[in-house]
Design a protein around this nucleic acid. Structure first.
Lengths: 272, 272
DNA sequence: CATGAAATGGAATATAAATTCCAAATCTAG
DNA sequence: CTAGATTTGGAATTTATATTCCATTTCATG
């Protein structure tokens, strides 16, 4: 058994694979080739499956893992699994701890929000479907008027959208609910609605979204989960998962998404 | 046990999840939410891990799987594992790829805002003076009422502060300028004002800040440069430099700062 | 407030997968 | 061609994980 340390990253693993491949005996070489060709399978397969894929016995695959510096297959698989779901390590539990400790210094809290914000932003790139984003931009570019709907936690997002659209001269209406006056009836066919809401979903937002659909207006949603009512209503949905510290979210990701959407729409409209 | 067929695709699963989520009992709902928020983890985790993530017992997660139409967790995981390889390659390279395309596609623009947001957040930790932050928290904790002032680009920040303070039962007033009615005169000695403004500084915000100082109210500023009028007025100043893409800023850093400030104040008030 | 039904937690069990072991086969060097 | 070392296949064992079961709690209903 080799005593060298196990690779800590997939890249390091791939590198070692390249170095050693040519010196491996026949069956082990088959394993190496198979893994090199199908790295994505490692995280979700069993030894038996991978061995079958490489056309070797499980025990041979086992030896291959050890040859690469791991204690066994499990350790190697763990590398592939964590590397994938590394998106955000264990913020959930880390923040839970923070909650118990009460609130430390304001600076520490700020650091937490900064950290969570960064993670949320990174994650945003994978949670938003580029195709959906593209479609949202097209829909909104064609709309006569864009209606902005979002209350409570979502209101800052819609109010910033209103600011951005105003600056770019895109006709838009911010539904504020002020004075209890509703503007549902101003939504017409040919208009589009951007509805922003996160769990627990605001009733008022959903009602307006429904009204919009009845009028035949297009619906674009900025929401958090695939189970969101807006997704089920068939809206063009942009998903943002925002982690929370205590009961609050930093909204960093939601804002990045919103502003990118607004600017894209503005640019697209300029052209025509 | 339900006899309906197991979903054959992830989409079908998501659909069913959406349909049933609201009718599920508490613990199973937790499972649903966790899976909706972390669909990618299902492929690479054990029941125990997912259950821990959803904060339920493994047996509860098991029942959830059955509720969704699978015979058990293994069958459900199999579905997620087949899909897994599809999204594997692009998760790391995605961002890089998007950047290459220049500012053409909405996704590329989103990538830029994400990048800029991250940079702004990093910057924030160095630009905010911990002592000033500490002082701001103390000042605001003692205030009878907190007045929130910020217009145009700064308005989303103050509106989120208003939301946070409401949720924590901290008395606060959001100065919206609605209907042209000003509330300057409601600011009294013993109150505090959080003024948010970035270059070019909003006249209205500065006027209200001045009025506040005349009344002997405390002044906390969230602004961008040391040359900001608010700094010169002697406000307890928290500096945020937000990078921009074109004419727009992502506001990620401002939000992180604002929410950290709000939560600190809320926590501090709880104690007394 | 009592009663039955539904939901839950945790331990017990069954199942599947990883890992080891060793005899048989295959190479390598003299 | 043969002795020793290396590699291999497959079965045996161990470990991890999924699944079930049931006593206890929680919730809803009359």
């Amino acid at each position: 058994m080799t005593t060298d340390l196990a690779p800590q990253t997939i890249d390091a693993f791939i590198e070692r694979l390249g170095e050693r491949a040519e010196f491996l005996p026949k069956r082990l070489k088959q394993c190496a080739d198979y893994v090199a060709a199908n790295p994505d399978r490692v995280a979700v397969s069993t030894v038996a499956e991978l061995a079958a894929g490489a056309d070797v016995q499980p025990s041979a695959f086992m030896r291959f893992c050890q040859e690469m510096g791991f204690s066994g297959f499990s350790q190697m698989q763990k590398l592939f699994r964590t590397d994938f779901s590394q998106k955000w390590p264990d913020y959930g539990t880390r923040l839970a701890k923070l909650r118990e400790h009460g609130t430390e210094s304001p600076s520490a809290l700020l650091a937490e929000f900064v950290e969570v914000g960064r993670a949320s932003l990174e994650n945003l790139m994978t949670s938003v479907d580029p195709a959906a984003l593209q479609k949202a931009v097209e829909t909104l570019s064609k709309a006569r008027t864009i209606h902005l709907v979002g209350f409570r936690r979502a209101f800052p997002v819609t109010s910033y959208l209103a600011y951005a659209f105003e600056k770019m001269q895109v006709p838009s209406v911010l539904h504020t609910g002020i004075g209890g006056i509703r503007f549902d009836h101003t939504i017409q066919k040919g208009d589009a609605v951007i509805a922003v809401t996160f769990a627990p979903y605001s009733e008022q937002t959903l009602e307006i979204a429904e009204a919009a659909q009845r009028q035949g207006a297009d619906l674009v949603a900025i929401t958090d989960l695939v189970t969101s009512p807006l997704v089920r209503m068939g809206a063009t949905s942009l998903l943002v998962v925002e982690l929370d510290v205590g009961d609050f979210r930093a909204l960093s990701a939601s804002f990045a998404l919103a502003i990118a959407l607004a600017v894209s729409v503005g640019a697209r409209r300029e052209k025509s």
